[in-house]
Amino acid sequence: MTFVSHARHFAGRPVVDVPVGGPLPTVDGPVSWRFALWHFDETAGYKLSEEFRVAFDRFVAQAGPSVESLVVGAWGYAAFNTAPIAQLCAAASRLPALRALFLGDMTGEECEVSWMKVGDVSPLLTAYPRLEVLRVRGGEDLAFSPVRHARLRELAVESGGLSRAFVGAVLDSDLPALTDLELWLGTPDYGGDAQVADLAPLLAGERFPGLRRLGLRNSEIADDLAEALASAPVVPRLERLDLSLGTLGDRGAAALAGGQPLTHLTELDLHHHYLSEETAASVAAALPGVRVDVSDPQEPDEYDGESYRYTAVSE
Rank of each mutant, 00 (worst) to 15 (best):
R213N: 05
S5K: 12
F59L: 14
L241W: 01
A92E: 10
L241V: 08
A165K: 14
S244A: 13
V196P: 05
L268F: 01
T43K: 13
V157W: 01
R153S: 12
P297I: 07
R13C: 11
L98N: 04
E299K: 15
Y46P: 01
A150E: 15
A230W: 05
R212S: 12
S145K: 13
A92N: 02
L275D: 03
E302T: 14
Y274P: 02
L268D: 00
L183V: 02
V18Q: 02
L265N: 02
L265A: 06
R291S: 09
F80K: 12
D105Q: 04
L241R: 02
A222P: 06
L37C: 07
V234F: 10
R251E: 13
G64M: 08
G12V: 08
S314E: 14
V196Y: 09
P19W: 11
P23A: 14
L265M: 06
T187L: 10
G191V: 08
L178P: 00
P146S: 07
V147H: 08
T2W: 04
L37N: 11
G139M: 02
T126G: 10
P209H: 12
A83N: 06
P300F: 05
V54I: 12
D189I: 04
R207S: 01
W75H: 12
F102I: 07
E220A: 14
V294A: 08
W75V: 13
G29C: 09
S219Y: 10
D57Q: 14
V196R: 07
A127T: 10
T43E: 14
V16Q: 00
P84L: 06
Y128F: 15
Y308Q: 06
H271V: 00
A156G: 12
E277R: 14
S276V: 06
A55F: 05
E277F: 08
V15N: 05
V170A: 03
V196H: 09
W115S: 14
V167T: 10
L142T: 10
T43W: 07
V16I: 13
T2C: 02
E315N: 11
A100M: 06
V136S: 01
G139L: 02
L95N: 03
L103S: 04
R213Q: 13
T82N: 07
D242R: 00
F3P: 00
E206S: 11
A92H: 11
F80G: 11
G186W: 04
V71S: 08
A232F: 11
P288E: 03
P176Q: 07
F56A: 02
A90N: 12
F208K: 04
L256S: 06
D57C: 07
L24V: 10
E140W: 01
G29P: 08
D223N: 15
Y303G: 02
P288C: 05
P236F: 03
